[in-house]
Design a protein around this nucleic acid. Structure first.
Lengths: 340, 340
DNA sequence: ATAAAATGCGGAAACGATTTCGAAATTATG
DNA sequence: CATAATTTCGAAATCGTTTCCGCATTTTAT
């Protein structure tokens, strides 16, 4: 109903064969410049737009990239999406967005949907639940180009983009130590996530580098329920063994910590220093301003899209080799970690 | 390459005609339960997934909704997108995302792209540049269901979702007055945007309701360049006629105001009270915490998607009538507007 | 001057699904 | 038992492209 004129009708109008018109519009060498001009001007006049489905059906490609993110769009994912969108639009690619909402079953469903070719490639960040990866394996086996970012799975032999999670966590923890913290806690998500593990490793090694013994009680595995997280953090902060420094592995846990602190008598940074992975643009406006480890989210999005599109346009020349590309984060020190 | 088995191959495997298999999978009444069972189980076994392009080509619909937003994904648009995604996924619809980056030319291009049926419907918020709306008119004329939200265009006779911009701005301004402000400024975007106009109207009427004379110099039309905005705001705040209260029409201008205030000797809220339209989850953690007018972004997204999908699935029963549906915002008073 | 090659275009098949139409097989009806 | 009605399925057309193949006609080579 909404669709306009077809190629056949355009051809009839021009008294040419559909094949000729198609070739003219695709700038084929077999067509004379004269007819090309005629065809193109008539196409413009009649407002002809090729039916994308007919083309996709015939060519077996969709000029579409699917982006799968694991949770509601936060600052980080928003910036990655912006980064992907920027390149995709520039290259004439379309963007499909899916959200697994941290649900493995939904992830499976979505991935299976994409098995039928609706998208030419996939950029994704897995759910924290993703233990069984057979659905991802199947995608890859089918030859569908797929790139992981942030929450990656090393088992799938493809290119992955992350930030320097280990080093950033190490440096962040070191920073807390330099600021005088003696008992440093880590607030993180699911144990199973690669980034959680890497960040924990960095945190642990920083502690060890001081000759200290890491205390398992100081690693808090949080949930996806915001209120519950605040409660958990409150409990820890009210306990006699409370930490005097915290590294939060994701933005929202930093905010939860600010919330939790409110109900205690503690003050940031005098009683508790806080540093967090965060892509919030207003970390500097918080009370107190938040020391952040900022991930290069837009760049990650850009690079994912660039690499995928190169692979799609020149499949022979580019391979999504099994490698992890690391783009470093940047630490910005603010009030939450400096003693007054 | 990535595509799997076709209907024809599945049919061959079953020693049935493609038509029969198609009908079986679509649960047609013409097919016996016995063969349906056989077909379905074989389809599962061979991991058959219908080619979406063949289906779309034949049925002339894509089960896809396009979302067009005018700028990088901020809190508001992220929440709207989440809201749309939620319903779309539930109903088996796919989501295409486009960003016009406040550029009318890009908006035209994107809209023209969608003219060929790639999406069954559109949810959009126009750019601040959108003066000529012939491209939107054409979309609507072609019968492509389209819904506007937030930044709407009244000229296109379809359903639009907004918040109570006028009332919220009125109430917000009144709140500033009640807190003792005598000179209230409005920081807003482009004059041409419907929401800007409505919010300005609310602001103006609140001023008039006090018997005051609105001062044009107190309305600041900001740009899309963050740094420039900070400069503009600084200038105003340093002028002898500086305001003692500010209503910002969008979130980012509130943040710009916080930035600008830093370089002045002014204090919020004692010297300057600030209230802003904002969907930031951490407004309460700012320094000082920010009084906000929070738009029902997720709900707006939900409602857009619900209405569109109803229209798409039952075109006879639902019409996207020319109306503006208003979902009220909620004012949350925090430190930035209350004297200590 | 004739053969060979290049040019410019048309006809028709193909992509993979849905659907109209019709035919065969089964059951019901008189 | 003969005919009608119903159930169940197959053949073929169709959606709008692209592309393989073929056929003139013109240009170049021998």
């Amino acid at each position: 109903m909404a669709s306009g004129i077809s190629l056949k009708e355009l051809a009839a109008e021009l008294k040419l064969a559909p094949s000729t018109v198609s070739r003219a519009l695709n700038d084929s060498y077999e067509i004379s410049e004269a007819t090309k001009k005629k065809v193109i001007s008539m196409a413009e006049k009649l407002n002809y737009h090729a039916n994308p489905f007919a083309r996709s059906l015939r060519e077996n490609k969709s000029k579409t990239i699917a982006v799968i993110i694991p949770e509601r769009i936060n600052n980080f994912f928003a910036q990655v999406m912006d980064g992907i969108e920027e390149i995709a639009q520039e290259q004439g690619y379309h963007l499909l967005i899916y959200n697994t909402h941290e649900d493995l079953e939904r992830e499976r469903k979505i991935v299976n949907l994409l098995l039928n070719g609706r998208a030419d490639a996939i950029v994704m960040s897995v759910t924290s639940q993703t233990s069984d990866i057979s659905h991802l394996q199947k995608l890859h086996d089918r030859g569908l180009p797929i790139i992981f970012f942030d929450r990656i799975r090393a088992e799938i032999p493809t290119t992955k983009f992350i930030t320097n999670d280990y080093e950033s966590a190490y440096e962040g923890t070191k920073h807390l130590i330099q600021q005088g913290c003696k008992k440093i806690a880590l607030f993180t998500l699911c144990k199973d996530l690669s980034i959680s593990q890497e960040r924990k490793r960095g945190y642990n090694d920083a502690i060890l580098s001081e000759g200290w013994e890491p205390d398992p009680a100081l690693t808090l595995y949080c949930t996806h329920d915001e209120e519950k997280n605040v409660k958990l953090i409150e409990e820890l902060l009210l306990s006699p063994d409370r930490p005097d420094g915290v590294l939060t592995s994701v933005e929202k846990l930093a905010f939860a910590t600010y919330q939790a602190v409110k109900t205690t008598k503690l003050r940031i940074p005098s009683d508790l220093k806080l540093i967090s992975f965060s892509n919030s643009a207003i970390a500097g406006l918080l009370n107190p301003s938040l020391t952040t480890i900022t991930q290069p989210a837009v760049t990650i999005g850009n690079e994912c899209a660039k690499l995928l599109i190169r692979k799609l346009t020149k499949p022979k020349h580019y391979e999504l080799i099994d490698q992890v590309i690391t783009i470093p984060s940047k630490i910005t020190v603010r009030e939450s970690t400096v003693s007054l």
